[in-house]
Design a protein around this nucleic acid. Structure first.
Lengths: 173, 173
DNA sequence: CACTTGAAGTTCAGTGAATGAACCGAAGCG
DNA sequence: CGCTTCGGTTCATTCACTGAACTTCAAGTG
């Protein structure tokens, strides 16, 4: 289709990436999956997104091999990032850092640290402690000075304490 | 407005970044500015984008302090990245790398190298030669194995030879 | 067993953004 | 003066996003 999805004339890797993740809401869906939010209802509540759009994005991401869908009860599904999806971490981190520099008068809203080194990440997602660019499995998120605790949905509340990326939030029981 | 631009409910730096650069075409406009394409007509031809949309994106990016507009002749303008815009480089590089991994059977379409080290960049935009994340001013682009020389507009042709990021392509005379 | 609740969607009318083609005004050129 | 180029604007059409209502199935409750 002509809007949002295709940049076919561009012989460019960036354009190819944007065809997969460049639509409205898609990157925020991926962010939530990195945070460990993985059920439809929790995603919908945390993103405050129309359900039809969330369905569409999850379906498309699944078709592209970025997200995996699995049934955790009969009729209930959960979504997680594939290895391919997890490789998007440096891109999301870089965008997030830029958003903080551009517009975060009270400091970063969230801080990311390399858990084994207990060191906050620097530019490019690099850990100054060990000089590598850690995989998301080794990264902790926690609220920063610019965080505003105004949301009350379950996912927002759970994210107010330190949490390892990719490990599920909000499992029942 | 309600579509494309705002993610106001999200207390999130990533959402703030996407409000500035998340609309369709915006990231590709920025890519071209990094490549040194800086005149309206060249951008329009290289992106194959409706003129009204290009006008809108350049206006908005200028208002956000990401792009600077200057008159190089009476009534003729050129656009360049501000310091703020240049800080987006790691994010664009990371996305581009992901696009190559996800969908580039014949290898990367473009290769980026840290000019002083003559070393190709690795994950996160890091230079393995010196261990830093170089600024775009120090980076060269050149076509990679996956490049397809099918476009004939002036900017596409000029980009077939090695070129330093941010230095103007296609100056007259 | 009937009744309610909740998850995960689908459907649909209304709205707003993207598209591409046409139009426009100012500057430069011969 | 006529022609072209640049850098737009205007406009009808197309298409995606929105929010609300509706649906379906499974599980839990009395």
């Amino acid at each position: 289709m002509a809007l949002g999805r295709d940049y076919e004339k561009q012989n460019c890797s960036l354009a190819r990436a944007l065809e997969v993740i460049g639509e409205r809401w898609t990157i925020l869906v991926l962010r939530d999956l990195f945070y460990g939010i993985h059920r439809f209802t929790d995603l919908q509540a945390h993103l405050d997104i129309p359900r039809a759009v969330l369905t569409d994005r999850l379906t498309r991401l699944t078709a592209e091999g970025v997200v995996r869908r699995s049934e955790y009860q009969r009729g209930r599904y959960e979504y997680s990032l594939t290895a391919h999806g997890r490789e998007l971490w440096p891109a999301l981190f870089a965008l997030s850092q830029w958003g903080d520099r551009h517009n975060a008068p009270e400091g970063p809203r969230r801080l990311f640290s390399h858990a084994p080194c207990a060191t906050d990440l620097a530019a490019g997602g690099m850990c100054p402690g060990c000089g590598t660019v850690p995989a998301p499995e080794e990264i902790d998120v926690r609220p920063g000075p610019g965080a505003r605790p105004d949301r009350t949905d379950a996912a927002s509340v759970a994210l107010r304490s330190r949490h390892r990326l990719l490990t599920p939030l909000l499992t029942d029981a």
